[in-house]
Amino acid sequence: MLVFAASDKGGTGRSVTSANIAYRRALGGDDVCYLDFDFGSPTAAAVFDVPGSLRGVETGGLHSYLQGTTVEPHRVDVWAESEHDVLRSRPTGAGQLVLVPGDRSGGEFTTNPATVRRCAELFLRLEEEFDIILVDLSAGRSYAVDMVLEATAREEFDALRVRWLVFHRWTRQHIIAAHGLVFGERGVVAGGVARGHEADRLRSAIRFVRAAVPDPESALFAHVPPPQAAWLRRCDQDLKELAAQLDIGVTKVLGSVPLEPVLQWREQLITDEDALTSRVANVRTRDALKRLAEALSGEKAWEPL
């Protein structure tokens, strides 16, 4: 399965959440490959704590591959190279977890038919090797988005399961932005259709992920003064209505991740140890990430009504 992680704005927790999804799927036994297409600011390596590629690799990363200067992009086996205590040894039953980083001096670049072809070939090659290929796209309507839309419009992709996750934070601006990114005039759907995608099919392959959602009922807000509580609830309700109006209501949502102090301060994986042993992270967050990872392949979430 090919999964694209997109967002309109930065700071939506796209990279950190999709890295967590990748981690959870790998733990569950899937062979997972994580492609860092966030060409502007690669962060995945930091989340997985692989020091050699913290700001991307020196040479032979995704940029070099797409521009044709290397035949095969560099791969990082997270289980082997991570400095993270928990990640350092592959747990029993876990599948592969491979990171394909960008180049350190990369950045955005223009695309041409040749890069699109290389991109498509890479996806098809990885698809044979892995169960889940998670592609972390840079924020906004970037060249990367255009490139993957064009690549996946090829007929070789017709038989593949391709899915899109659009991340947004739980604020008015983020909701509007996420709606714009997908349904806007220059949005993913319009862009996809222009490149030969079928509108309905593409639309039904897109789900939203709400990140850093403050849940007024959670323990975090148990002791706020009554006016604040009333304000929070009303805002939450207004946002729900806004999301429903913009057609990104709960039926279009794959999952939501609660506001998590650990993720606010550090972009990292939430391991079971964090939630259960050291208890620096909330169990609710861990559960939300688990559910999100499961929903990725659950059919129910993708064709509800």
């Binding site: 729900k240 999301a243 429903a244 209501g249 709960v250 039926t251 009504l305």
Partner: peptide
């Protein structure tokens, strides 16, 4: 009739029926 907007307390009361998507069906 609007699964996107069903209130949380209502869903909790009807949890024996199903979730917001099951209920209308």
């Amino acid at each position: 009739d609007a699964p996107d907007e069903t209130a949380a307390d209502v869903l909790a009361a009807l949890q024996r029926v199903g979730n917001n998507i099951d209920i209308p069906q």
